[in-house]
Simulated scan of single mutants.
Amino acid sequence: METRPANPVTATFEAHRDRLRAVAFRMLGSHADAEDVVQEAWMRLARQDAAAIENLAGWLTTVVGRISLDLLRSRGARPEQSFGDGISEVVVIDDSPEPEDHVALADSVGLALLVVLDSLGPSERVAFVLHDMFGVSFAEIGQILGKSADATKMIASRARRKVRTTDRPSASGRAQREVTQAFRAAAVGGDFEALLRVLDPDVRLTVDTPGGTFVTLGATEVAARAKMFSGEVARYQPVLVDDRPGYLSWNEHGTPVSLTSFTVSDNRIATIAILVDPARLAALDLPA
């Protein structure tokens, strides 16, 4: 049987799929969202006369950028969810004791950069990622943002300054774990002053429960709620949650009851995210 040649449009899209996925992931910080964006780009291409598109690679990058920008803006309109809607994509691995590959994972520069990118506004993030990471021209990015090339250049420059000046998580995975261990010891011991020493003054605590998401701001307020970190559990173990240090706790029946992750910056805890929703915990691939 004669083999039909592959559809040239499909072949071109597949040739660019990995790059498009990388672009979307850098902008969104979520593999699931990146996959959805690339799939949406493909569906939009299928509705076009591909032969009339002069630069298909550039067209696809523009479409991915616009879809990602819309997603970033819609996130800003919703309350922050510490573990996100795609809870099943969170990666949780054992971090006890210190396997060398886990240490390297915790020290990942790419993931540290994603944390920094979260400090940028939607337009800034799109401009920075597309230009500084993927070499897209300011004119092309301006088409996505609805701005002139000069205005887009200014947005990218502002984003670059923020990236350079924003405190990044500690470069040392070991140092991060030491900070979180000090926090847990202070919480279990009820040492209020020790808690304040390891908490950033503007620390943000987010607790995801079956009844919704609850946020507490400030070191004093978070330290006052430290009893939630020292509740009776059968056992706990250190884990990495998307490369952030944390703890996974079980009850006496061996059922996971909470997953806690920390973001450490300048040797202090900047954010704490706790998941206690049984249904969402059950959706995770957790260490045994």
Rank of each mutant, 00 (worst) to 15 (best):
M1C: 12
T3K: 15
T3Q: 12
R4P: 14
N7Y: 08
P8R: 11
V9S: 09
A11D: 11
A15G: 13
R21E: 15
R21L: 10
A34Q: 02
V37S: 03
V38M: 03
Q39C: 08
E40C: 05
A41S: 06
W42C: 08
A51R: 14
E54V: 12
G58C: 02
L60R: 04
G65S: 09
G65L: 09
R66Y: 04
S68F: 07
S68H: 10
D70V: 10
L71I: 01
L72W: 03
R78H: 11
R78S: 09
P79Y: 00
E80A: 13
S82Q: 14
G84W: 02
G86C: 14
I87Q: 05
V90H: 01
V91S: 09
E98S: 12
E98N: 10
H102F: 10
L105H: 06
L111R: 04
A112T: 06
V115H: 02
S119I: 05
S123I: 12
R125G: 09
A127I: 11
F128D: 07
F128M: 11
H131D: 02
F134W: 10
G135F: 01
V136I: 03
V136E: 06
S137D: 04
S137H: 03
Q143V: 15
I144C: 05
I144W: 00
L145W: 10
G146L: 08
S148Q: 03
A149N: 11
A156C: 12
A156D: 08
R164W: 13
T165C: 13
D167N: 04
A171E: 06
A175W: 00
Q176W: 02
Q176V: 04
E178W: 07
T180I: 10
T180C: 02
A185H: 12
A186W: 00
G190L: 03
F192V: 14
F192M: 11
L195G: 03
L195V: 00
L196N: 00
V198S: 06
R204I: 04
L205D: 12
T209L: 10
G212S: 02
T213C: 12
T213G: 08
F214C: 15
G218H: 00
M228W: 11
F229W: 05
G231V: 14
G231Q: 10
V233T: 09
V233L: 11
A234T: 13
P238E: 12
P238K: 06
V239N: 01
V239L: 07
D243P: 00
G246T: 01
Y247T: 02
N251S: 07
E252D: 08
G254M: 03
L259G: 03
T260I: 07
S261R: 01
T263Q: 07
D266E: 11
I269Q: 00
A270R: 02
L281T: 03
A282N: 15
A282Y: 14
L286G: 01
L286Y: 04
A288G: 13
